[in-house]
Design a protein around this nucleic acid. Structure first.
Length: 276
DNA sequence: ATGACGTCCTGCCTGC
DNA sequence: TGCAGGCAGGACGTCA
């Protein structure tokens, strides 16, 4: 569930609790969630270092330490950070970082889709989690014509699938892909390479507007998402099509209903009348 | 080479 | 009433 706006909200709420702090110990409760390095390597890379910076790339959080290492954390669907004194360990705890004054930063993940790893900070771009990622949504280099050219790469794929492809734009997930296409009045089934420059431009602009607003509102909570303060995102009430199957379209009126179809194995919501 | 589909994982919700 | 089955989905593996 955490897509770009939710991960950004976690970054913003976790930063003040973590940046500048020294990690005195790292306990790993679910070693299967660690990739590319061993649990021992992960622990050694973090322990006794000070957190310099918490940043984001696509849907990944990057925790940079002052000993030239960066932890990479993907939240999957239900990954959540909880900062608290060490009460009894919660079920589904993946990893816990101990700070001073009995504060513990815990990554908790009910559905166990989260992924964590470690890289040398200087080689972070080559890490397998990040190497294939495309543009950040607000990258100035991503102009309408560049975006249009990117979409030409896909001769036989629908635009919804391409928006979910992290190698094009990093950070969109299933909820915002449907919302952005509704905003841009484009059918999710349109083949990506058929979009003209004008349509690419509208799509890009709509995506930026929606993601900015969602970030501003702390992301979307359907059910599970909480930020590092335990708060829900407030964007759910702004959703125009996601989970609105059978409801009237908010743009073209009562006579047109939102439809649900499955594309690439994922629920996709749209208005057949105003999305072409 | 590219795209489609299955898999992982667990809780919740629906319907019989 | 209880339980089976479907659904949710990010990212990767496999197959055609």
């Amino acid at each position: 569930m955490p897509e770009l706006p939710e991960v950004e909200q976690v970054r913003r709420t976790l930063s003040p609790k973590l940046v500048g702090q020294t990690v005195s110990s790292v306990r790993i409760f679910n070693p299967e969630r660690i990739f590319e390095v061993t649990p021992v390597q992960f622990r050694r890379g973090i322990v006794d270092s000070r957190v310099k910076k918490l940043s984001r790339r696509g849907k990944y959080l990057l925790m940079q330490t002052d000993n030239q290492h960066t932890a990479l954390i993907g939240l999957g669907m239900t990954g959540r950070f909880i900062v608290e004194p060490d009460l009894e360990p919660l079920e589904y705890l993946v990893v816990a970082f101990s700070l001073k004054r009995n504060r513990i930063v815990k990554l908790y993940d009910m559905r166990r889709f989260s992924r964590i790893s470690l890289a040398e900070t200087g080689k972070i771009k080559e890490h397998p989690f990040l190497a294939h990622l495309g543009y950040e949504f607000d990258d100035k280099q991503l102009t309408p014509s560049v975006f249009c050219k990117e979409l030409q790469r896909f001769r036989n794929r629908n635009i919804k699938g391409v928006l979910l492809d992290q190698s094009v734009i990093a950070g969109l997930g299933n909820i915002y892909a449907s919302e952005v296409l509704f905003g841009a009045k484009l059918s999710p089934e349109r083949e990506a390479h058929t979009l003209n420059l004008k349509e690419c431009s509208v799509l890009l602009g709509t995506m930026r507007k929606i993601l900015r607003k969602a970030i501003e509102m702390g992301g979307t909570t359907i059910r599970d998402f909480r930020d590092a303060d335990g708060k829900n995102g407030r964007y759910a009430k702004e959703l125009k099509v996601y989970l609105r199957e059978g409801q009237p379209c908010t743009r073209c009126g009562t006579s047109s209903e939102i439809k649900r179809i499955v594309l690439g194995g994922r629920s996709t919501f749209y208005c057949p009348r105003c999305q072409k």
